[in-house]
Amino acid sequence: MNIFRLLGDLAHLASIFILVHKMHTTRSCRGISFKTQALYVVVFVTRYIDLFYSWISLYNFVMKIFFISSSCYILYLMKYRFRPTHDPTLDTFKVEYLAGPCFALALIFNYHFDFTEIMWTFSIYLEAVAIFPQLFMMQRTGEAETITTHYLAALGIYRALYIPNWIYRYYTEGTVDPIAIVAGIVQTGLYLDFFYVYFTKVLQGQKFELPA
């Protein structure tokens, strides 16, 4: 554990709390892509299969349980509690276009050709692109609530902070995880446009609006 990874994980936790807080206070899931949230459930469930056979640490265990359960809870809120506030006609990105190629890539580029390892690799690739339906939805509506942008910023910063963590681990432990690193850089790259608008507009007190 190092400071970058810890801060990254805390940003990830924060993003989830911001999202749940937004839904409860506004009693709405408007502006949130159900598809992206469903992809995160798939990401966590396929990545943390090792909960059944591998013990890393109490921290690792608790975080994994939290990510799986909170992502399921978010789907429950969207599907049942606040269902009328979700507009499926805005959430039209085809997730097959993400899951299919990610699975094919996981079959080709992995560390070990067995079930759990391919699932882990698939989850890493899928996480990198899971934000697409959300970004696509914002592109369509051209705007986002401020609280939603705080959620996305925390979510983007989480993976961005893993990059200095990998650099740090390379120098201190000599460990390199090329699959996580390449996917993590792609994942962070997808947020650059968003980060630009977030830091130059939202944090200056303006509304998140995209040029028409």
Partner: peptide
């Protein structure tokens, strides 16, 4: 290289 790869990150 045998067995499972250990992934200690989240």
């Amino acid at each position: 290289e045998q067995g499972n790869v250990v992934h200690d990150e989240l």
